[in-house]
Design a protein around this nucleic acid. Sequence first.
DNA 1: AAGTTTGTTGACGATGTAGTCAGTAGCGAC
DNA 2: GTCGCTACTGACTACATCGTCAACAAACTT
Lengths: 211, 211
Amino acid sequence: MDDEPDQRPEGRASRRASKTRQRLLDAALYIFNTKGVEGCAIEDITESADVGKGTFYRHFMDKLDILRTLLDFAADDLIKRMPPESSPAISFDDRITQLIQAHLTFFTERSDLFLLFLQGQTMVATRPASLPGLHAPFARYIGAIETRIATSLPAPGLPDQKRQIASLLAAAACGPITVGLSISSSKHDVIKNLDLARQSLLAGVKQLLLK
Amino acid sequence: MDDEPDQRPEGRASRRASKTRQRLLDAALYIFNTKGVEGCAIEDITESADVGKGTFYRHFMDKLDILRTLLDFAADDLIKRMPPESSPAISFDDRITQLIQAHLTFFTERSDLFLLFLQGQTMVATRPASLPGLHAPFARYIGAIETRIATSLPAPGLPDQKRQIASLLAAAACGPITVGLSISSSKHDVIKNLDLARQSLLAGVKQLLLK
DNA sequence: AAGTTTGTTGACGATGTAGTCAGTAGCGAC
DNA sequence: GTCGCTACTGACTACATCGTCAACAAACTT
């Protein structure tokens, strides 16, 4: 994680505090990806961040709280890599390619964040009940894709068609990564498959829109 | 879970034992999908199965062991729904459709197994190190797809092309479900998206094979 | 420099959990 | 019936984990 120094947080004390907070976030990201979210103890995080245990509770309510924060951050990072919302209308093909490309650089540059993102996605998908408030970053993520394809859609489309295509794009981007890694493909193979998925998606969506 | 009574397990005693084992498997499946694999205690499982805690350890080594058993079972179930290995050579389109269809009925009829399968897939993908021996069912799953597309491939194809297409198919089948559920689409919407993914995949793979 | 506020600490009580094991119940053989 | 065997039980030990809190430290204020 590498935020800029935040906007003038007053003095040294509060600067130190945000540094501690950041260390906790970094440590949590690492531990979550190593031992799994539920499989890790708060003390694993504070140990790795080299702070006292009590400090954790000054910055976060509990494990779910810090997980939420990390997933929000991950979603932000991924969304920032997409073309700007107000970007000029380009061909549908190019827009799809841009969006997949955003996932690709996210995966290559911040695979730690992406892996947590995928972990969270599955957690929310399979047992939303026990994870209050965790669906928000994913809804934001799909929403971001939706608005970004809106301006490039060949036809106006039905109300929920945009959402459908956005979901499909997300699946085309996230699916190959999860599947590829689950059978221990190399990162390189995963990336190749992702490009394949892009082509596949493109062809498929065109077909959908023709009807 | 609903196995047939197993092949003649001798007398009533051992029949009672496999019934207990089955109750544990059923309970574990339920609990895993409710509280998450790592978030649940052995006693949650035995409690739900209404057996003593010690009984668990008579049938399974530990939590990872029963999880492995369940994932193996899930993979078997999914594979059984695919067309038989020795099935007649049909068109590539139809074969892809058959395979996606297998996922679809698996999802509609045994969503509990499929959700655990997806959970396991993500666990293995994001942190293989801490989960020894858990990748096997997923390798088996991809292998099953591979052999089933082999006979219908338009061209012989390169050695790892089959694997690539198999991964892509798996992604096209699993991705939309995970993404769909993560933004709390209805089961119906998820199924619709899955069909979209099938079309998309078909178009994309054809394009791949043309080159 | 003295006093106040803010951030950090780790020991602590309470609770949870894994895995064991001596004991019990049910079954099958004779 | 009774003996041996297998399946089952749940109290128990040993340890892990949570979240708190009184004490401490650093940074600000006057």
